[in-house]
């Protein structure tokens, strides 16, 4: 590390602190963002899930699908 590295590290930490501590909470108070966040929380959706195992509810085939779609047609072995 060079001698300036601690200063650069402090500046980087400050920038992250300002964005996450001030800017993002301000963005969250905007009406459109507030509505989106509230809707997601109400539906208990985890939009950041990378794979289905991270979802709050594991996806299972809904029963109503079988009433509306033929899942396995007669010609399928």
């Amino acid at each position: 590390m060079t001698t300036c590295a601690p200063v650069r590290l402090a500046l980087m930490a400050a920038a992250i602190g300002i964005v996450w501590g001030v800017a993002l909470p301000a963005v969250q108070r905007m009406a459109v963002v507030k509505r989106h966040v509230a809707a997601m929380e109400l539906r208990e959706v985890n939009p950041a899930a990378m794979v289905y195992t991270e979802l709050d509810r594991l996806p299972v085939r809904p029963k109503w699908v079988e009433d509306r779609v033929t899942l396995w047609p007669y010609f399928w072995p």
């Binding site: 809707a39 997601m40 539906r43 959706v45 985890n46 939009p47 950041a48 899930a49 990378m50 794979v51 289905y52 991270e54 979802l55 996806p59 809904p62 109503w64 699908v65």
Partner: peptide
């Protein structure tokens, strides 16, 4: 992404979200 799929599907309704 899976989470974004569920978020987008659910905003169309429960049925779309499940599929």
């Amino acid at each position: 992404a899976t989470g974004a799929v569920v978020a987008a599907g659910e905003s169309l309704g429960k049925e779309a979200g499940e599929v």
